[in-house]
Nucleic acid binder design. Structure first.
Length: 273
DNA sequence: CTTTTTCCCTGGACGC
DNA sequence: TGCGTCCAGGGAAAAA
């Protein structure tokens, strides 16, 4: 499930192959991908566009074109890219194929078909993201102080708030659990009750887990791999995610699983308070 | 305003 | 082996 570190790894892998390349031919195989827009129209609009930047915002991939238009891609659960000399027509999970002007194919795959491609005009990107995303957790704008204001009225479990993209853009279920372990914070604590010191720990924990994820090129559980097909290594670094019953690396207490924010949540009852 | 619930999808795990 | 059931989860939308 691509979260910020996985999307960043994919972005970095795609960038050198896409910069200055023109979309020569675009085929949208799965009409769900561009919903509610007509896939044929989107494909036609994309043909002839030249990529000038490959960026990431939260869990979104942002392909910027010379015309100022933007292709905003969200991989959701199982979306992935594969750079191939020639696309494999037999691949049942192939949802879109872009033929570049150098003859190579960029294949978009997605088992569960939750991913989305949205073509936006130059002035549409900022308003679209503004209502959905908060600060980049690895950016300078996110501080314990700014968090205090944002969380003041949030009585929901801390885990649910950490998953809120308007608070921490790009943090998903894996890195939320890992961040709370690093921060020694219990996932069911009401978010508004954190002390300034705990907020500082939360910011540090989130940054630590995300940076570790990027350094390990993301976590590969089942579907995820980067654009070259390589798996990530973050799964070997998990402190709590998926480890129920196993001992905490910090205090030895058995890791427990619960539910928070509608998501499976792993934590250590011994040292997360 | 915040919070919760439902839905979208598929494949893998598990019980019988 | 072959069913049926549950689970995984990001985010949109509706409901509370």
């Amino acid at each position: 499930m691509p979260e910020l570190p996985e999307v960043e790894t994919i972005r970095a892998g795609l960038e050198p192959h896409l910069i200055d390349r023109t979309f020569e031919r675009v085929e949208i195989v799965d009409p769900r991908l561009t919903r509610p827009h007509d896939p044929r129209e989107v494909a036609a609009e994309l043909e002839g566009e030249t990529v000038v930047a490959v960026e990431r915002r939260g869990k979104y991939l942002v392909l910027r074109f010379e015309t100022g238009r933007v292709l905003l891609i969200h991989l959701r659960m199982t979306g992935s890219f594969r750079l191939l000399r020639v696309a494999d027509d037999d691949d049942p999970y192939r949802r879109a194929v872009v033929r570049l002007d150098n003859g190579s194919d960029v294949v978009y795959r997605d088992v569960r078909r939750f991913g989305t491609w949205l073509l936006l005009e130059p002035d549409e990107l900022d308003p679209y993201l503004a209502t959905r995303l908060g600060e980049e957790p690895l950016g300078r704008a996110l501080t314990a102080r700014s968090l205090a204001d944002r969380l003041a009225r949030r009585r929901a479990p801390l885990k649910a708030v950490v998953l809120d993209q308007r608070v921490f853009a790009g943090v998903g279920n894996i890195y939320a659990d890992e961040a709370l372990w690093w921060a020694r914070l219990h996932p069911l604590r009401p978010a508004c009750e954190l002390t300034p010191e705990e907020l500082q720990n939360l910011v540090r924990g989130i940054r630590r887990s995300l940076r570790l994820g990027i350094a390990r090129q993301g976590a590969t559980l089942r579907d995820y791999s980067n654009a070259d097909g390589a798996a990530g290594g973050m799964q070997a670094e998990f402190r709590v995610y998926g480890r129920d019953g196993e001992p905490c690396f910090r205090c030895g207490h058995a890791i427990e699983k619960t539910r928070a924010g509608g998501r499976g949540t792993w934590y250590c009852p011994g040292c997360q308070n």
